[in-house]
């Protein structure tokens, strides 16, 4: 469904991605791994239209989407959960969901249900300012927002970063439930989680793809993964 073909991306003169390619099939969960500064976030931002690739193309359902705005991509089913876990802190949790529902056309009650479905405890926080949520709850709210409307491709940047082990389990459970229902590209440094969920792993190093693992045997071999980092 998604093909990234030979893209370069840069901030000003600093080129960050070099000839990056990857391919995602419908319903697949692809993980991107790589060291800090490897360009993982840059790659997701480029796919989401927040950064324009200098060269190369990005195809979705066969059509070229490089150069489309994040707003347009949203309406094609792209959902981006950024690394910074920034919720709309001065709005309530319910209002956060309301914003997510606004342009998708989904009624608020259905949108709220979708979030409660992945995390029933959120019911107690609906009227709380989202800024008061814990890091894990924020992450879950952000993933919940991404499920509102008709998502087709989730782009999630380091969903478990900086979270406690219990919370990581909670998020792993949510991701596991989504697996197969939605296509997803997830940046993740937590290798055990990657091996458990990945259909495909792309290893990024200094802005280049140095390995693409497709076989379960390769993916399960954390040693191999760790070495390639």
């Amino acid at each position: 469904m998604l093909q990234v073909i030979g893209i370069d991306a840069a901030y000003g003169h600093a080129r960050v991605l070099h000839d990056v390619s990857l391919e995602l099939e419908e319903g697949e969960m692809l993980f991107i791994v790589g060291r800090n500064g490897a360009g993982k976030t840059t790659l997701l931002r480029t796919i989401m239209g927040l950064l324009r690739p200098l060269k190369g193309s990005i195809k979705f359902d066969g059509g070229d989407i490089a150069g489309l705005s994040p707003e347009e991509l949203y309406h094609r089913g792209f959902r981006y959960v950024a690394q910074d876990k920034k919720v709309f802190g001065s709005l309530t949790v319910r209002e956060n969901i309301e914003i997510a529902a606004y342009s998708s056309g989904e009624p608020l009650s259905r949108a709220v249900d979708k979030v409660l479905e992945i995390y029933p405890k959120m019911r107690d926080f609906l009227n709380l300012k989202a800024g008061q949520l814990s890091g894990g709850q924020r992450q879950i709210l952000l993933i919940g927002q991404a499920l509102v409307g008709t998502p087709r491709l989730l782009l999630i940047d380091e969903p478990t970063q900086g979270l406690a082990a219990v919370v990581i389990n909670e998020i792993a459970k949510i991701l596991k439930r989504l697996k197969g229902q939605l296509s997803a590209i997830i940046v993740e440094q937590n290798l055990p989680l990657v091996t458990k969920l990945a259909d495909k792993v792309v290893v990024l190093k200094e802005g280049k793809v140095i390995a693409t693992l497709r076989e379960a045997s390769e993916i399960c071999n954390t040693d191999l993964l760790e070495k390639s980092l």
Binding site: A82, V87, A100, S104, G149
Partner: peptide, 13 residues
Amino acid sequence: LDNKEGVRCLGIG
């Protein structure tokens, strides 16, 4: 005000 990019990524111009 909180997160402009976040709003854009939710399909709101």
